[in-house]
Computed example of a mutant assay.
Amino acid sequence: MDFTILTEHFELVVVVGCLVSGYILKHWIKDVDNKYIPTSLAVLGAILNAVVSGLTVETIIYGALMGLASTGMHQAFTRFIENTQE
């Protein structure tokens, strides 16, 4: 599978917006369980990308992928900073 197609639909604004929203959900809103954060960010990424790039099925799917990617980026950064391994 060729992953270069993902770079054509990458929107930095959406990823950064999801990163910031995920941080706020995790650290400031204590009622949200951690297992719901990736789903919330996928939905938020889909909505943000639809607003930025236009409302199509393709932009919604890529937005959800960017929301999930922001979750993975946060986890990788946290593990790098804390120097922990599972």
Rank of each mutant, 00 (worst) to 15 (best):
M1E: 06
M1Q: 08
F3Q: 03
T4H: 06
T4D: 07
T4L: 09
I5D: 13
I5W: 06
I5M: 08
L6C: 00
L6F: 05
E8Q: 07
E8F: 05
E8N: 07
E8M: 03
F10K: 00
F10T: 00
F10P: 00
E11T: 10
E11D: 12
L12R: 02
L12M: 10
V13Y: 01
V13D: 00
V14K: 01
V14Y: 01
V16G: 03
V16A: 07
C18K: 06
L19E: 03
S21C: 14
G22V: 00
G22R: 00
Y23V: 03
Y23Q: 12
I24H: 02
I24D: 02
K26N: 11
K26P: 01
K26I: 04
H27C: 10
W28F: 14
I29S: 05
D31Q: 15
D31P: 07
D31H: 14
D33I: 10
D33K: 12
N34R: 01
K35W: 09
K35L: 10
K35C: 08
K35R: 11
Y36G: 01
I37E: 05
P38Q: 02
T39K: 00
S40G: 11
A42Q: 01
V43A: 07
L44E: 03
L44R: 04
L44D: 04
G45C: 02
A46D: 02
A46E: 00
I47M: 09
I47R: 01
L48M: 13
A50V: 11
A50T: 15
A50S: 15
V51L: 10
V51C: 04
V51E: 03
V51W: 08
V51D: 01
V52M: 07
V52L: 07
V52R: 05
V52F: 10
S53Y: 02
G54Y: 06
G54S: 08
G54W: 06
G54M: 07
L55R: 04
L55H: 09
T56D: 02
T56C: 02
V57Y: 13
V57T: 14
E58K: 15
E58F: 14
E58D: 15
E58A: 14
T59R: 04
T59S: 13
T59M: 08
T59H: 13
I60F: 15
Y62G: 03
Y62S: 02
G63E: 10
G63D: 08
G63F: 04
G63V: 08
A64M: 12
A64T: 10
L65A: 14
L65Q: 12
L65D: 09
L65S: 11
L65T: 11
L65F: 12
M66S: 09
G67Y: 04
L68S: 14
A69N: 07
A69C: 12
S70W: 05
S70Y: 05
G72T: 03
G72P: 14
M73V: 12
M73Y: 05
H74Q: 14
Q75L: 09
Q75T: 07
Q75S: 08
A76D: 08
A76T: 13
A76Y: 13
F77G: 05
T78P: 02
T78K: 11
R79K: 15
R79A: 13
F80N: 04
F80L: 07
F80T: 09
F80A: 07
I81C: 05
I81S: 06
I81F: 09
I81Y: 10
E82S: 12
N83F: 04
N83V: 03
Q85L: 14
